[in-house]
Nucleic acid binder design. Structure first.
Length: 891
RNA sequence: GGGACGAUAGCUCAGCCGGGAGAGCGUCCGCCUCACACGCGGGAGGUCACGGGUUCGAGCCCCGUUCGCCCCACCA
């Protein structure tokens, strides 16, 4: 039975079926095999709270294209998948879910709460994986990992203990970013600055006289955006060079409300140019002030509880929220005559990126990673090119962060995550950091020990992702073979959170880079260029798009015309075009199959002897496309590669080649001609499907498996390579000439409104026998494409009816006698226009070729090219003039 | 304040090494031509933001300007 495809490509029927087939046959699975070169990608592990969004879709598609390409090239390709426990994001979700049942975290206790988290993970953690599969992602699911599985947890503990021994992880009282809502510390990277409307309050504190009395006439004035923190002020600072104030250094002012004398210190931090030059110093609630406090041994007075209400150090404001306290304090200061004025101000306020709450800098006992030494190899890696960032412009962003890096606060006051492997002795206070829970205190022998309640920043484990997923800390075969990975594909928005941390972790723990290249992509925005967000409700669900248009269409849409590192807009119409392209490929294949005789599969390993010029032309074009696309993919220029395949398949193979060979397929007399055409059709189609497969895995697989029976799947077939026997420059040129002629003739007919159904005799006139030979050889398809009833080749214009429609090209003139369409005047006008255009071109060409400096400096090939052009224009001009002359003699 | 990115057809965007600008959508004209109307053929539409410079030659390289967007830092 002859194989057939449905008339319209319907992805719904086939995508799930093919994905199952791939999984069943273990095509995604990679094992250590020393006869092959590994190529490894680790997935950016999606959060278990996540739902597939367009950002994932883009990220996954890029990785899948690369891994499928490499797999077909013969690499032992591993795409290592997994998910992230996403400590704070998950904890918040679980808390909210519990809230609906009226349960709090505290009700359940630590154990109970963690149980809920694991339940949550079991229920939702696989949702995202299922969604990734809908996209066609060829991850090795047998190797799926989770950042809190046994192995990853072991890796985390190992790193923590090792780094602690090295002195690179320490505990200390530092000012940290505190989220009063989530009740945890967060890292600098998690702080998001937001422009907020606020005020600048101008306040003055009275000077304390030399005799100890409070002055009623002398005040120091300053401005602040946070008047409530005055409760914790422990100094005013002025610049030591400031002539206005330097005599006052060492004197005191009376802190109003609290009635506490505080010193005036001289510190560089006070900028003489700014405001009055006086700054209030609150070491407990401002990072800069904390530093000033350290330099001057100032007391640190914390005035806030963990929920940002005022604590017992805030006197009568105790219990008030920080903003209520602010209003009250401003009012009280005003009543005391100490409020000088209020100014409107828009300024950036740090907020927690998860919940949007304004962070409160607080002094806390937290765990930190010391960054100064750790970061060095990471800086060197990008400087020397050991790790390459694409696009290159990301280098600067990278260095901007590494050059200004501060120690990393890694402890979180959360329950869901890796618990810090530190224990404290209740009797002597000793801190024990260990891989397993110690039985007794090594210092005093006490068995009264308790573990640090905190967990680690979720990025602490993701930083180890490239090697922990391959077995580290064990020295597994997988690790030796697949590490370092080849390319990391991710959005630029997590360069600081994740990419940099993986790089320094890789060098520190493995002594080697975690990946050779980082390929950054941008954000997928909506059609108006806005970020897709839940609150705006403008997000487009990739799953719905897949449902409607197919995964292939979505994938191609996201890849075409998307340059690395730059944001893209999701314009729905573009998906339609991609879907149309899938249908185009489908129908071209359908056409070829319809013409294949039963059981007649071409032997693609053997090129037939009797190929026609057009066969050679398309093979040659295909050959060039193979090379270009391969080069682009090697350079991770995915969008450019996709464009080239699209253009080749649609613009050359379908629009031209298939049309060219139709007469040979329909005719039955010349069997070898038909076979040559069928061989070429299959060779080029199957080759093109292979090129397209990484981009559109489903439709290509379905066609591949229908049109040939030798190989079980396109995804494990061989990637095409450039072949010298497919290189036909002469035929490329010859068919190029025919295409030009066909286009010109079609335009002429279109201009004159000649219906396609109306055929005409075409005279091809050229003095050059070689040109006539080309038309002779390609007569069959030329006639079809140019709507010719007959083609007459001759060296001059004898016998051509007067007033025939004509178009003149450099290499030949074409004449179509259509008596009812004679319009001598119109023809003259048309040719005059052409004459004028040619005059311009000839002038430009002559100018260039008479330019001494062009001739002496431009490359020889360029000069030759220009000379050829000039010659062509001259020939064409000659033909146009001749024709004009004749027409004028008629009129 | 520092830095990145962008400004190309009506819209959304490509444009690799500098050698006379492309795609999709839209639009206009003509076609149900025996694979595909999710299609075919043809057309219109561009001062490549602006001003200088380098070069035989600039959308592309250099300097400056304007506008947009993002990141980082900071505003006491």
């Amino acid at each position: 039975m002859k194989k057939e495809l449905a008339k319209v490509y319907d992805p719904k029927d086939i995508e799930d079926r093919l994905y199952e087939k791939w999984e069943e046959n273990k095509y995604f699975h990679a094992e250590v095999d020393h006869s092959k070169t590994p190529f490894t990608i680790v997935i950016p592990p999606p959060n278990i709270t996540g739902q597939l969004h367009m950002g994932h879709a883009l990220d996954e598609t890029m990785q899948d294209i690369i891994i499928r390409f490499k797999r077909m090239q013969g690499y032992n390709a591993l795409w290592q998948p997994g998910t992230d426990h996403a400590s704070i994001a998950t904890e918040v979700k679980v808390i909210n879910a519990l809230k609906e049942q009226g349960i709090t975290k505290a009700d359940l206790g630590r154990e109970g709460f963690l149980k809920k988290c694991w339940e949550w993970r079991d229920e939702y953690g696989h949702r995202i994986v299922k969604q990734l599969k809908k996209l066609g992602s060829s991850c090795d699911w047998d190797r799926e990992r989770f950042t809190m599985d046994e192995g990853c947890s072991r890796a985390v503990t190992e790193v923590f203990v090792k780094m602690h021994e090295k002195g690179w992880i320490y505990k200390g009282k530092r000012i940290v970013n505190w989220c009063p809502k989530c009740q945890t510390s967060i890292s600098d990277a998690e702080v998001e600055y937001q422009l907020q409307h606020s005020h600048f309050w101008h306040i003055k504190y009275p000077l304390i006289n030399e005799d100890g009395t409070v002055s009623t006439t002398q005040f120091l004035e300053f401005a602040t955006t946070r008047p409530e923190t005055m409760l914790g002020d422990t100094a005013l600072a002025v610049n030591p060079e400031d002539p206005r104030y330097k005599d006052l250094i060492g004197r005191k002012v009376m802190l109003p409300i609290m009635n506490r004398p505080i010193p005036i210190v001289g510190d560089e931090h006070a900028d003489m140019e700014e405001g009055t030059g006086v700054v209030k110093i609150t070491p407990a609630h401002d990072p800069n002030d904390f530093e000033v406090g350290k330099r001057h041994n100032l007391p640190v007075i914390n005035i806030m509880n963990d929920d940002a209400t005022i604590n017992e150090n805030g006197g009568r404001y105790q219990g008030m929220d920080r903003y209520a306290a602010r209003d009250a304090i401003v009012k009280d200061l005003d009543d005391m005559g100490l409020l000088v004025g209020i100014e409107d101000l828009d300024h950036n306020v740090g907020t927690h990126d998860r919940c949007g709450t304004t962070v409160e800098p607080l002094v806390k006992d937290q765990w930190f990673v010391k960054m100064d030494e750790l970061i060095k190899p990471a800086i060197k890696a990008v400087k020397t090119g050991d790790i390459r960032l694409i696009p290159k412009s990301m280098d600067k962003t990278y260095f901007n962060w590494t050059d200004n890096i501060k120690d990393w606060c890694i402890s979180r006051q959360l329950w869901w995550g890796h618990r810090i492997p530190a224990w404290y002795c209740d009797d002597c206070g000793e801190t024990i950091v260990a891989r397993t829970a110690p039985e007794k205190c090594p210092k005093c022998g006490s068995t009264h020990l308790h573990q640090d309640p905190d967990t680690l920043d979720t990025w602490f484990s993701s930083a180890l992702w490239p090697f922990e997923t391959l077995g580290w800390p064990d020295q597994t075969e997988d690790l030796k073979y697949f590490y370092p990975t080849d390319v990391l594909v991710t959005g630029y928005d997590i360069i600081f959170f994740w990419v940099i941390r993986m790089i320094f972790s890789g060098y520190e723990q493995m002594g080697e880079r975690p990946f050779k290249t980082v390929l950054f992509h941008g954000l997928v925005r909506d059609a108006q260029g806005r970020k897709m967000s839940k609150s705006l409700g403008n997000g487009i669900d990739p799953l719905k798009v897949i449902d409607q248009y197919g995964a292939d269409a979505l994938r191609l849409t996201l890849i075409r015309g998307n340059a690395p590192g730059s944001d893209m807009r999701y314009v729905p119409e573009r998906v339609e075009n991609s879907r149309n392209f899938a249908n185009k490929v489908w129908n071209a294949s359908r056409f070829i199959m319809m013409n294949m005789a039963e059981g007649e599969e071409a032997d693609l390993t053997k090129m037939p002897a009797g190929l026609f010029p057009e066969d050679k032309w398309i093979l040659s074009r295909f050959n060039s496309t193979v090379k270009a696309v391969t080069d682009n993919l090697e350079e991770y220029q995915l969008g450019i590669a996709a464009d080239k395949i699209y253009d080749f398949i649609w613009g050359e193979f379908c629009d031209w080649y298939i049309e060219m060979v139709k007469p040979r397929l329909y005719g039955t007399e010349d069997q070898s001609s038909k076979e040559a055409a069928l061989w070429t059709l299959q060779a080029v189609l199957i080759g093109s499907l292979k090129l397209l497969h990484p981009f559109m895995p489903f439709v290509t697989e379905e066609i591949f498996c229908t049109i040939q029976s030798k190989e079980p799947s396109i995804m494990i077939s061989k990637w095409p390579v450039w072949k010298s026997e497919y290189d036909f420059p002469a035929e490329e040129k010859a068919v190029g000439i025919i295409k030009d002629a066909v286009t010109a003739i079609r335009k002429l007919r279109s201009d004159r409104n000649v219906a396609p159904s109306r055929k005409a005799k075409i005279y091809v006139v050229s003095e050059e026998q070689s040109v006539l030979d080309i038309f002779e050889e390609d007569r069959l398809f030329f006639a079809r494409l140019a709507y010719a009833s007959d083609v007459v080749l001759q060296k001059d214009r004898t016998g051509i009816p007067e007033g025939a429609l004509s178009c003149i090209l450099p290499f030949a003139g074409f004449f179509m006698p259509m008596q009812d369409l004679i319009d001598i005047k119109g023809e003259i006008e048309r040719l005059q226009k052409e004459e004028k255009r040619l005059e311009g071109e000839l002038k430009r060409s002559a100018n260039m070729l008479s330019n001494e400096r062009f001739l002496s400096k431009a490359p020889a090939a360029k000069i030759e090219e220009e000379k050829d052009k000039q010659k062509n224009y001259q020939q064409q001009m000659e033909g146009v003039k001749k024709q004009l002359e004749q027409l004028r003699s008629l009129s």
